[in-house]
């Protein structure tokens, strides 16, 4: 078991030596994940773990990837995607060009879900999807567009609940237990590392999706990130959050109007 003070020591090391700032992340979540990693990797002592994090670049990569949560799925919350199809894409479709940002996209299942929606709305050709995360290794998975085949049955069901009419399996090629999604989709995805804690706005977007990322941040960091999104959204752009996240009580809430019951807000300034 890792002690609270040891967590703080690691966070200080991560920032001082490697420039990763996790100090505004939920301590309850960090403690759980660091404790889990500590026993998973069978460290004999905290000092040993600290030494590895300080000095071993390849272990640092694993450490950062494991203490952040990289669980995601395609078409999670189908009613959310149904609302994107019905309420958001028809409006975005009137633009000559569509820029979408998936912030904290992890392994990219939501990015590919979005690409499928765009394709079905006939908008993929004039769209670009920017997929960013602080972990370079998860972005490599986004680039490949390969997900476990075993998930496809559930994804197919969610896809249908989200209003999908096609045969879901036409979007990927199955091989050796993996599903590789069509090149046509990945060609429209631009990947880049981006740290929401420390990096700034890098483009103007029509739609920003950041789902189940803010729950790991404290109130101040949530506000900072929402301001960053606000600065990165064009006028009348859309912001989509996770099902338990909200703009309510945030510094930017007056600039937005919630579309419906889903966690989608339209910028009204």
């Amino acid at each position: 078991m890792i002690e609270d003070e040891e967590i703080e020591i690691l966070l200080t090391d991560l920032f001082d030596i490697h420039g990763y700032d996790f100090t505004s992340y939920s301590r309850a979540s960090l403690k759980r994940r660091i404790s889990r990693l500590y026993s998973l990797d069978k460290f004999p002592s905290f000092a040993e773990l600290r030494y590895r994090v300080r000095t071993d670049e390849s272990y640092l990569k694993r450490f950062v990837e494991e203490i952040t949560v990289n669980v995601t799925e395609m078409f999670r919350d189908p009613s959310f995607y149904l609302s994107l199809r019905n309420d958001v894409l028809p409006i975005l479709g009137t633009k000559p060009f569509i820029r979408i940002w998936h912030a904290g996209c992890s392994t990219g299942e939501e990015v590919y879900s979005m690409a499928i929606l765009l394709k079905e709305a006939g908008l993929l050709k004039k769209s670009l999807l920017y997929a960013t995360d602080l972990n370079p290794s998860v972005l490599e998975k986004v680039r490949k567009g390969i997900f476990p085949l075993i998930q496809m049955k559930q994804y197919s069901e969610s896809y249908i609940s989200s209003g999908g009419l096609a045969d879901f399996s036409t979007y990927y090629t199955a091989n050796y237990g993996q599903a590789k999604f069509d090149q046509e989709l990945s060609d429209k995805i631009i990947i880049s590392t981006h740290n929401l804690v420390s990096d700034s706005s890098f483009n103007e977007f029509d739609l920003i999706l950041c789902r189940n990322v803010l729950i790991y941040f404290d109130k101040d960091l949530q506000d900072r990130v929402l301001k960053l999104f606000d600065a990165s959204l064009g006028s009348l752009g859309y912001l989509a959050l996770g099902s338990k996240e909200t703009l309510k009580f945030s510094a930017v809430q007056n600039n937005y109007k919630q579309l419906n019951r889903e966690k989608i807000w339209k910028k009204i300034v």
Binding site: S26, A28, S29, R32, R33, V69, V71, N212, I215, Y216, G242, K244
Partner: peptide, 9 residues
């Protein structure tokens, strides 16, 4: 004593 929601495994 506040809640944090977590979407891990």
């Amino acid at each position: 004593r506040t809640f944090t929601l977590d979407y891990s495994e």
